[in-house]
Amino acid sequence: MLPSSALPSAPACADAAAPPGPARDAGGRAHFAVLDAWRGVAALAVAFRHINGTAFFLNGPLHSALSSAVDFFFILSGFVIAASYGERLARGFSLLRYAVLRWGRVWPLHGLMVLAYVLFETALWLRGSGGLLGGREAFTGPRDPATLLPSLMLVQAWIWPGRDLWNTQSWSVSVEMALYCGSALLWRVLGLRANWLALPAGLAALWAIALFPAGEQLLRGVAGFGFGMACWAVWPRLSALALPRPALQVAEPLLVGAALLAFATDQSLRLIDPLFVLVLLVFARAEGPISALLKTAPARWLGALSYSLYMVHMLVIGRLCDALAFVQARIGARWISVHLGGRDVILLDPLPAFGVVVAMLAVTLVAAWAAYALVEWPARDWSRRLAGRIGPQPA
């Protein structure tokens, strides 16, 4: 397969789009701006999904289905990692260098969030459990001390699949870290053939979910990441096709509408994952009206914050729920029911509940911006400098 940079140009055509391609940073990593923005939208959707309540928009089927945004993360990760590292690893790029780049990208913020939970549980333990926080006991349930070290080292999803521990949403990061390692070894051994083998592996994992429900989280990761790698295998040929511009203009809203309909009705990964694949391949071209919106500064900002937003949102939303519980206990109101493990329920009517949700998401975005500026970006920059001193310089 030809690398994307070596593909011939598509024929010029008055009503056809020129073949798109990813921008690349100084390190050779592929960058699809619109897909990055979609990552931010998906992270915000997951944050919204973790705010529960009695209002219709906080407990309906569409709200519940937003957890499937994690599967889009898996597909997008497989695509972007294959685009950025697949060929380079197949040609001998240092595995240690790759591991440092991936670990430095993911672990520092995760480690900080686990530490924040340890400090919170310690404060709760020192103060003693009480009614203000729903009778919570410190270091119980998802914050069991026995699970702390594996959670900190991001292996918890492989030891206790299906359990959401400490920074609960990091189960998907645990799955991804193993997928990063496994795919790197496949590229080293099989070369770019690994991208084509990823498709049957993804299909097998998707089929196996019904047979092995205990391993659902792991299989979701294998399926999504495999589909993403397969998407990169076909992307150079698809991106070189001269497609009519009106078709591209219509495809984006149709796909988004189909995905929302699937969320609200079926919610089966056997339907949602293929839809996500189509969304990725269409929006990677970035030539439709929704792509134009996702290229704007606010969408690009949201995309830049996506990982920080995903990692901090449960802690921030949980503490805001605790604050509401504290205030309502003081004034004798009944706004929220709080429970250990993030199962807090807002009891307000739809209009005030909407205001609370907007405020929670706004505070979460501010916290994500702080985490990005103070932790994620400096750690990523440091890991790139460290990786630059490992192994031969890439061509």
Rank of each mutant, 00 (worst) to 15 (best):
T147K: 02
P161V: 09
G134I: 03
W125D: 11
I159Y: 10
G128L: 09
G135A: 12
G135D: 14
P161N: 10
A157F: 01
R143I: 01
A146K: 09
L154R: 01
L133T: 10
W125Q: 07
Q156N: 06
S151A: 10
W158H: 07
G128C: 11
L133D: 09
G141A: 13
L126K: 09
P142K: 02
P150D: 11
L133A: 07
W160M: 04
G135R: 11
L154K: 00
P150R: 08
I159A: 14
L152K: 02
L148S: 05
L133W: 12
G162M: 02
W158P: 03
G141Y: 00
L133C: 05
I159N: 12
G128I: 04
R136S: 08
W160L: 12
W158M: 06
P150N: 09
W160Y: 14
L132W: 15
R127D: 13
S151P: 04
I159L: 15
P161R: 12
Q156V: 02
L152D: 04
S129C: 03
W158V: 04
P161S: 10
I159K: 14
G134A: 09
V155I: 15
W125S: 10
E137C: 01
L148K: 06
T147V: 00
R127Q: 15
L152T: 08
L132F: 13
P145A: 07
P150G: 06
L154N: 01
G141T: 02
G130T: 13
G131V: 14
P142H: 00
L149A: 05
R136D: 06
G130Q: 11
A157T: 07
T140L: 00
L132P: 06
A146L: 14
A157I: 09
V155C: 08
R143A: 11
T140K: 02
W160F: 10
L124Q: 08
W125E: 10
